[in-house]
């Protein structure tokens, strides 16, 4: 379990995270959403152990990430937005680095590379951005870590690769893995991420499962615009509206609409989801 308590972090005088607290449970694929500059990448790097919390604490299975103990690092893989084009063939990189993660499987790496239509014999510094990203995604999934943290994993991927990435993510992660994906490309991962965390400037606006969200919010795809909707947007062939689900209706979450609704009615949504 990842437990974050009263976490604060600043870059000089610019306070990015302030008093953030939440928990992440095992076996779930968390989607971390937020506007630019709210501290999504900072939060991910703090969880991975690349930065030290200034105030508050982060515990991953009771361990402090910033200690960077091998037993912690072996259970986590952080895939940054921009990856390094190292001077290795992909297969050699995987063989060499894979030794450090006890659950790493080279067969699995090759399978995922094949699924993503990537050549393992190609040198990584000669790859395109998308191919390089796919190599790192393959490696990250082949490490079979308990915690997988990804920052904008679909950036740079072409349209077929995005579908292949979704397939690989569901096929090659174990049931007890906790995956945290930060993304702006919500449509790429719409049917995969659950729960959803929405980060705001110095605050967590929402941390709820899809079921909890649909219990409390109704996503209305009808053509009739309702005046008390938290958010309404005209789309070709009708509208998408987010309303308070007073009647207990079932609906399919539209993450973009949810994100906009949460941002327009921060306090309403926070109060709604904090009442448990």
């Amino acid at each position: 379990m990842i437990k974050i308590e009263d976490l604060s972090f600043s870059y000089g005088n610019y306070e990015v995270l302030k008093g953030i607290s939440f928990k992440m449970e095992e076996g779930k694929i968390y989607g971390l959403l937020g506007e630019n500059g709210v501290g999504k990448t900072t939060l991910l790097t703090l969880i991975a152990g690349l930065k030290a919390p200034q105030i508050g604490s982060i515990l991953v299975d009771g361990k402090k990430p910033y200690d960077r103990q091998p037993s912690f690092l072996e259970n986590i893989f952080y895939l940054p937005d921009v990856v390094a084009p190292v001077r290795y063939k992909a297969i050699d990189f995987a063989k060499d680095r894979g030794k450090f993660w006890s659950k790493f499987s080279l067969d699995r790496f090759n399978q995922i590379m094949q699924l993503l239509e990537n050549d393992p014999q190609r040198r990584m510094d000669k790859m395109s951005l998308g191919q390089l990203k796919k190599t790192y995604i393959s490696f990250a999934l082949a490490c079979n870590c308990k915690y997988l943290i990804m920052d904008e994993p679909t950036n740079g991927l072409d349209i077929p690769s995005k579908a292949q990435f979704r397939k690989a993510l569901t096929k090659f992660t174990s049931e007890d893995s906790t995956i945290l994906i930060s993304t702006h490309q919500v449509r790429d991962l719409e049917n995969i991420i659950d729960p959803i965390i929405i980060l705001d400037k110095q605050d967590v606006l929402l941390n709820a499962s899809i079921q909890e969200i649909t219990e409390k919010l109704y996503f209305d795809y009808s053509t009739e615009v309702v005046p008390d909707a938290l958010y309404a947007e005209m789309i070709p062939g009708g509208a998408i509206q987010v309303r308070v689900n007073e009647e207990g209706l079932e609906s399919k979450v539209n993450i973009e609409a949810l994100f906009n609704a949460v941002h327009l009615h921060k306090d309403v949504v926070k109060n709604m989801f904090n009442k448990k």
Binding site: G49, Y78, P80, V86
Partner: peptide, 15 residues
């Protein structure tokens, strides 16, 4: 460097 340094720091070996 952010990318290479992150890779180094997160490689599971002790300091």
């Amino acid at each position: 460097d952010k990318n290479i340094g992150s890779d180094f720091l997160l490689l599971p070996a002790s300091r």
